[in-house]
């Protein structure tokens, strides 16, 4: 059994068609993924399971439906919270952060900008 998360060659589908390698950050850490694939897939390939924590009980949530319906995988992307990462294409330089409750974690970009008066 292959332990890497990405399928190199599939017996029916062959070599998966993927976009070029791009870099993005996850909680400030640089990671790479394929341009255009859902952000959630790039995270999964990098071994990230937890996308957010629930507001009341602080429970972890991750990918569940993978088609944009359940909203379990929402994160703070480029400062905007509640982004469904399973249907949001990865772009170079994206800033992806774990979401805490329904708002960005304290100290996130949006908060900072708010504090700085930039938004």
């Amino acid at each position: 059994m292959d332990t890497s998360e990405r399928i190199a060659v599939h017996p029916i589908l062959g070599v998966p068609e993927k976009g070029r390698q791009v870099q993005f950050t996850y909680n400030g850490k640089t990671m790479s993924g394929c341009e255009g694939e859902p952000v959630a897939m790039a995270l999964k390939a990098a071994g990230v399971m937890v996308h957010r924590y629930t507001k009341k009980r602080h429970e972890p949530r991750g990918i569940f439906c993978a088609i944009g319906r359940c909203t379990d995988c929402v994160m703070v992307v480029d400062g905007v919270p509640n982004i469904r990462t399973c249907v949001t294409p990865l772009a170079e330089g994206m800033d992806v952060r774990t979401q805490d409750g329904v708002t960005p974690l304290a100290g996130d970009k949006a908060d900072k900008e708010e504090a700085d008066g930039t938004i």
Binding site: E5, I7, P16, M41, K44, I63, F64
Partner: peptide, 11 residues
């Protein structure tokens, strides 16, 4: 979700 991940996105 499993199908989406492996058959559409190669993960």
């Amino acid at each position: 979700a499993a199908q989406t991940m492996m058959n559409l996105h190669g993960i």
